[in-house]
């Protein structure tokens, strides 16, 4: 059979010579190899003190966005729920009442918005589907929990902090990537 690559090596089945049967030279060779590893660089990162930077295409926990004045972007159009291949997103729409203009950006808003994090596959299709840039995938992981029901994230879990009341947390939640571009 013709070899596909030249990487394969024929096993030598010839009887061992006296030097080989002594084993000591090969043991010594092996010991030298392990010894040389003392001076190699260690690839481990001391995790809590040092963190590996997220890659620019990292997709983490979802966040529901607000605009600069702190109004929710989401209009409960349901495109994200339709796009979701894992059917993790459910929502209920409601109409904005008078006097709620400072809370919701459009006339329709999501009264209930839930993502089941046990179903979510973090594909990012919801982010792509959203016409209002209301949902995007942030740079954090879903934390572990003891109960299944804790993994159904509702609006309070998902909403980004208010940009006016809590600007630091807002900036932090927004992450390093320019998410705001498409809004403007």
């Amino acid at each position: 059979m013709q070899a596909l690559t030249n990487k394969s090596k024929q096993v030598n089945r010839a009887p061992m010579s006296f030097i080989e049967r002594l084993y000591l030279p090969s043991i010594f060779k092996g010991m030298l190899i392990t010894f040389s590893h003392i001076f190699k660089k260690k690839p481990t990162i001391n995790y809590p003190e040092k963190q590996r930077p997220f890659s620019p295409v990292f997709r983490g926990l979802q966040i529901l966005n607000r605009d600069e004045e702190g109004r929710e972007n989401c209009t409960a159009c349901g495109l994200c729920a339709v796009a979701c291949p894992a059917e993790a997103i459910t929502m209920e729409a409601a109409e904005r009442q008078n006097g709620e203009e400072h809370l919701y950006k459009e006339e329709k808003y999501a009264a209930k918005y839930e993502i089941n994090m046990l179903r979510c596959i973090f594909c990012g299709l919801c982010e792509e589907a959203c016409p209002k840039d209301a949902i995007y995938l942030s740079e954090t992981f879903t934390p572990a929990d003891y109960q299944r029901k804790q993994f159904i994230y509702n609006k309070t879990d998902l909403l980004i902090p208010h940009p006016k009341e809590n600007p630091d947390a807002y900036e932090k939640a927004l992450g390093n990537r320019p998410k705001r571009e498409s809004v403007n």
Partner: peptide
């Protein structure tokens, strides 16, 4: 750990 390029208990 050192022989295997790790850090070991620290």
């Amino acid at each position: 750990a050192i022989l295997q390029d790790r850090r070991g208990p620290n």
